[in-house]
Design a protein around this nucleic acid. Structure first.
Lengths: 231, 231
DNA sequence: GTGATACTGATGATATATCAGCGTGTCAAG
DNA sequence: CTTGACACGCTGATATATCATCAGTATCAC
């Protein structure tokens, strides 16, 4: 999306990948939906050779899964899958903030404080709670903040991996509604505080707690809604 | 390789992927080598449709890179690429040992102690130093140990990511000779000690130091040999 | 009526063919 | 000797065709 530096060859395979990616992360394609290469090719008006590349890429991203040489399906959401992606996210984000402590310039720190405020401001007010639109905007701003930390770590691989985690979260967010409960104030500003203090261990601890809080929140609502999701 | 649980459909794309993977990690294909899909198809006696899938997979694994719609090449080894893969490895391994602290059974801890001894034993004796064969065996045992920790973390995604890191290391190991210097004794046993004590923070610290030591060693020899590698 | 067999349609895997882009070499004109 | 243009070959991207497999269904024999 914001990959300005990466050349995007205007290839059909790329378009199909982007299209499927959007369809999955936007909730148009439900987890568990089977994906026929031929039907996708027909839907996009292409032959299905480009579809092969797109699907393999999607599998690498982790948005689809193919079990035992059968048809591919949109990744299903289970308690384990949620936990496991948070394990990875915790690994990435703590590592990112550790490096950010070492590399962040004063200007970047100021920028992060501004973004932290934006995140805080995007927490829906009571009247807009349960507003899907506001929730999505909040999610977007939230990821922007975390992504910026990864960028400041100066490790492109971390950014890339974090993006994958974001895609997963977006996939789930369409089926697990996690209301943005009023967070303790300065939740994110505290992360920037730690970076500013360049206290690596403290930053790690704060970020770890932050990610785990997110996991607990999502798991809580997943359990609440999993009974109703028996369709 | 040891993916017993994962079904390996006997497909040509899979064979090409495995073949290329082996050629790259064994050093038969030099970093920077350009890979023509048609030539690969010819070499494997297939059409090049299966090659597409294999190459996209390899790109996902990070063993090959395609810059700006040009031909794909075997990933080149640079100072940055080494550092970045170690950043990821540090993230994975510290996360893995943290979870291992929580999940390891007494039996698994015993097993790890045994493997740690094997690693220690595989450190080449002075007379076999600079022995390529012994070095490879040492590397193998070493990764077996780390991989086991990841397995004990009960998070398959961590194992998977660690495997990618291992592939990268194997790719580099053919071009950067890192002699197994005599390590401080109980280097790896200390990791198991931390797991046994279930001291998450200590385990994290020990593992982080262990990985960074590996990075320093590899960077040191990379710098030593980089002048000679101007061919 | 029941069970087995054959047919049908969909799928993924693969092969072959076509197209456009890009570099390179060669040959002719200046 | 330089320079420019054209042709050839290689590349990746894509389309189309063929194959085996498998599931579902219908049909036929008993």
């Amino acid at each position: 999306m914001t990959q300005i530096d990466v050349e995007q060859p205007d290839t059909l395979a790329r378009k199909i990948y982007d299209g499927l990616c959007r369809e999955i992360t936007s909730g148009k394609l439900k987890p568990g939906t089977v994906l026929s290469r031929r039907k996708i090719a027909a839907a996009y008006g292409t032959s299905y050779v480009p579809v092969i590349e797109a699907m393999v890429r999607l599998e690498g991203t982790g948005l689809i899964e193919t079990e035992s040489s059968q048809m591919a399906r949109v990744c299903r959401v289970t308690l384990e899958s949620i936990q496991h992606t948070y394990v990875l996210r915790e690994a990435f984000e703590t590592q990112a903030i550790r490096l950010a402590c070492e590399h962040a310039t004063p200007q970047e720190i100021e920028e992060l404080y501004q973004m932290a405020e934006d995140v805080q401001a995007s927490v829906p007010q009571p009247e807009t709670a349960a507003d899907r639109q506001a929730s999505e905007e909040g999610l977007r701003v939230h990821w922007l903040f975390h992504r910026r930390i990864a960028e400041i770590s100066r490790c492109p691989l971390l950014v890339q991996e974090l993006e994958r985690a974001e895609l997963h979260q977006r996939l789930r967010a369409n089926w697990i509604y996690v209301p943005e409960m009023a967070e303790p104030p300065r939740q994110h500003a505290m992360l920037v505080d730690a970076i500013k203090a360049a206290d690596v261990e403290a930053a790690d601890a704060v970020m770890r707690a932050h990610v785990r809080l997110g996991l607990e929140k999502e798991l809580h609502h997943y359990r609440l809604q999993s009974t109703r999701r028996q369709d």
